[in-house]
Nucleic acid binder design. Sequence first.
DNA 1: GTCTATATGAAGATAGAC
DNA 2: GTCTATCTTCATATAGAC
Lengths: 219, 219
Amino acid sequence: MILSPARRLAATRAVLLPEHKPGGTRGMVLEAALKLFAERGYAGASIREIADAVGMRGASLYAHYPSKEHILAELCRIGHEEHRRSIQRALLECGADPRDQVVAYVHAHVAMHAQFTMLAVVANGELHALSSELGATTFALRNQSIQTLEDIVQRGVDHGVFHVAHVWLAAAAIGAMGMRVAYWYTPEFDLSSRQVAEVYAEFALRLLGAAAPARKETS
Amino acid sequence: MILSPARRLAATRAVLLPEHKPGGTRGMVLEAALKLFAERGYAGASIREIADAVGMRGASLYAHYPSKEHILAELCRIGHEEHRRSIQRALLECGADPRDQVVAYVHAHVAMHAQFTMLAVVANGELHALSSELGATTFALRNQSIQTLEDIVQRGVDHGVFHVAHVWLAAAAIGAMGMRVAYWYTPEFDLSSRQVAEVYAEFALRLLGAAAPARKETS
DNA sequence: GTCTATATGAAGATAGAC
DNA sequence: GTCTATCTTCATATAGAC
């Protein structure tokens, strides 16, 4: 599989769930901005292009958002909230075994990056364009999610079920392989987002030097 | 370790080897552009800012490059040439064992992303801003490097030393974890770029379901 | 090769009519 | 809420003097 290097990401549709999306025109503006920011980057997309995509004039956007940066801030916040929410939910549903927790985390992490490719590309890749004021919520969510993975790996090492000398590096590697999924995944890919998530969870366990999770042995 | 989300990458210095860098003012322009493109993105950095960093006026840049896009094209080409060169060299120095080859590849891949962080961030992350004309050489190099890793993994599976059901996914995951290194590595990190490369090579072998490379057993 | 001056257009954002 | 018209600044790039 060779990706087109001319495109920043393979996906062509901006996906925002109803729960992410404000109602009415504001939601359409947000979705149009998501697609443009994902494809061209925040700095490479203009207010007028966003407005065009919604079928209005640039000036009309300011009835919905006070600035371009506020649109980016909302997208980044939604992306990181969805990420954190799905991870927290997955962790609540699994037991205390660090292997189960890594599987749950990577499942949620990868599935999110495959299902919401554009949201992930923008929320991860355009963070640097956010001022500390408008990005505060997002930055906090991001740090929490990163710390959670590191904690899981550290606990697995402490319990003797993971075998890595450098916990932070392992967490960084696992996080990285999931993040990249957003750039190549499309619904037309051979495997579903869930299947990709399962393969990557197995990769993560292997990387950590773990055997199959305990749940497999006890069932 | 918590990264500052306000910065696109942790490194603060643009590194270009003498062999990458054109002589004279052209080289200074290229290096200044590298730093700005890495930190703000291609679209987010202006000709005037690049010129300022070199201590000249924007108009003077056009004595060295015909357009902003030509500067990006040269940076992307240099980055992918360095990447490909280091991988090819590493592969020539190792044997025919797919395990050795994965170690050689990941060593080179990760070391390059740690030593030339800004070059990697720009060459990977700003490719989408290149027209197909100016990006042709870079696109070809990139596809070659990706294909090489996939070939190594496939061969290892065929030889029975790797055990993965989805070769492309494994190659994508290994490539991804290395690419991300460019965003967090700095010379102040606890480990040297070589040490990080070695840890990641071990991660890759584990991910592939391989034992330690053959060379370890025969020495 | 670098400068000043400038062409030309596009950027983000606002004012005020409807 | 959306429009037209506009402000102001900045963008890439060129012309031509030195």
